[in-house]
Design a protein around this nucleic acid. Structure first.
Length: 391
RNA sequence: GCAAGGGUGGUCGAGUGGUUAAUGGCACCGGGCUGUAAACCCGGCGGAGUAAUAUCCUACGUAGGUUCAAAUCCUACCCCUUGCA
């Protein structure tokens, strides 16, 4: 029995539409996965994600859950699904990105990474093996290999070294993962737990920053190990925007056709559409919820900042073209008022709308691919974003 | 009426002779946020002027005064707070 199943159902240019099945949900791709770092999509209740937004898969994070409340606690409470009550699919990030973003608190060796916990300064250690163990305990449907993600502007030699380490870590991730899957199935059968009876899937991560030849090398090494899906890491980490598009254009067509391609940590609505057009199937990004919390709304007419004084008397919804429950009920003036007065509902409502907009955009992307009209969709979508931001 | 304390920029509040258009907080205005150390961070915030400087104007209750120089010292007046009558 395969851990996940993914089939292409339609293709339009490089853009693919497909169906990803895990034992917990059916996920149409291209898909945007809301980020739920600490077992929660910040500010948004699962009820909304399930019912109105219809998110089929969200993320969790190894590093954060490892620190608090700890893998053992979650394992003993029945895994992250049961602990959090999220019964649809989960993808857990390996903690690799934190290795990069918490750079000043870490010590990197071949064996793994020694961190100072950002929570209490305590010394912690994370390695490919530990990441796999934590992710197995969390119980997501899709796990990520433990990688190292260098900043976008490092030189060729440093990038090569980093990618080689990522490849060695990927191999170790896979080996430990395989052992854990064997144990997992054994204990699950012994427990008679039908809902936990499936194996997990593991995705490998391609690094190499903006260097195309290094990207190719990294891809080859990753494919050689063999994974259930392939992720592109290390983009949108400070490099020029065009670098990302160039890497995708170069890399995606060389990636295995029959496995999902996941662009990690991206992006803006425009990025999503552009990446789909280059052959990417899966995305995650903190932007809708992070910006939502800080007053930034994404709309079909571009970005807007609800703090701006011009919205004081604006009775329009955030996005007049958006069917979400926030836009059908609340005005910009009211949302601005909530934000200015420090009401937590502002963060919740704008995050909700942003996710609705992202997920709705992906729905339209999929539909247009199925209809063979993706090119037209992309053009008019980008045009509307730009037009809206002119004033 | 007497006594004491006090009146500073949108607001609260520092500052007691020059380096003060005046610390800081808040409010306000704007920008940023891409595998979440983020309900956060950065910048602006008297007026005019400049691409930015320069420069000019107005300002620490009001009116005078002392001084090369005053939010800061002196005088008078107005107002506020507290206490005593």
């Amino acid at each position: 029995m395969k851990p996940i199943d993914w089939q292409i159902t339609a293709q339009d240019g490089e853009a693919r539409a497909g169906i990803l099945r895990t034992r917990r949900s059916v996920i149409e791709t291209p898909v945007f996965m809301p980020v739920g770092t600490q077992g929660t999509v910040k500010g948004v209740r699962f009820e909304w994600l399930e019912n109105e937004l219809d998110a089929r898969i969200i993320l969790g994070n190894t590093y954060h859950l490892f620190l608090r409340p700890g893998a053992e606690i979650i394992r003993n409470l029945g895994g992250l699904h049961k602990f959090s009550s999220w019964n649809r699919s989960l993808l857990t990030d390996s903690g690799g990105f934190q290795v990069f973003s918490l750079a000043d608190l870490r010590k990197l060796t071949e064996e793994g990474v020694e961190f100072r916990s950002h929570v209490d300064g305590d010394k912690k250690f994370l390695s490919p093996e530990i990441s796999m163990e934590v992710q197995a305990a969390l119980g997501a449907e899709i796990l990520m290999a433990f990688d190292e993600c260098p900043p976008g502007d490092v030189d060729l030699e440093a990038t090569r070294k980093s990618l080689e380490m990522t490849a060695r870590w990927a191999k170790r991730s896979k080996e430990r993962f395989n052992e854990l899957q064997k144990q997992r199935v054994d204990t699950d059968i012994a427990r008679g737990a039908a809902d936990l009876s499936g194996k997990q899937a593991l995705f490998g991560i391609v690094q190499g920053a903006g260097h195309l030849d290094l990207r190719r090398t990294s891809l080859e090494k990753t494919v050689e190990i063999g994974f259930d899906g392939y992720a592109i890491g290390g983009l949108s980490v400070g490099e020029e925007k065009s670098v990302m598009y160039d890497v995708l254009e170069f890399l995606a067509p060389q990636m295995p056709k029959d496995a999902p391609r996941y662009l990690m940590g991206v992006g803006t609505p425009e990025d999503l559409v552009e990446a789909v057009s280059r052959g990417v199937d899966m995305f995650d990004c903190v932007l809708p919820t992070r910006n939502g919390r800080t007053g930034g709304a994404f709309t079909s007419g571009g970005k807007l900042n609800i703090r701006n004084a011009k919205f004081l008397t604006d009775s329009e919804p955030l996005d007049p073209d958006c069917p979400c429950s926030v836009c059908s009920r609340y005005s910009r003036a009211y949302l601005r008022h909530l934000y200015q007065t420090g009401e937590m509902l502002a963060a919740t409502l704008i995050s909700h709308h942003n996710l609705a907009f992202f997920l709705d955009t992906m729905r339209k992307v999929r539909d247009s691919i199925k209809l063979g009209e993706f090119k037209q969709f992309r053009e008019s979508f980008i045009y509307k974003l730009r037009e809206g931001e002119k004033d």
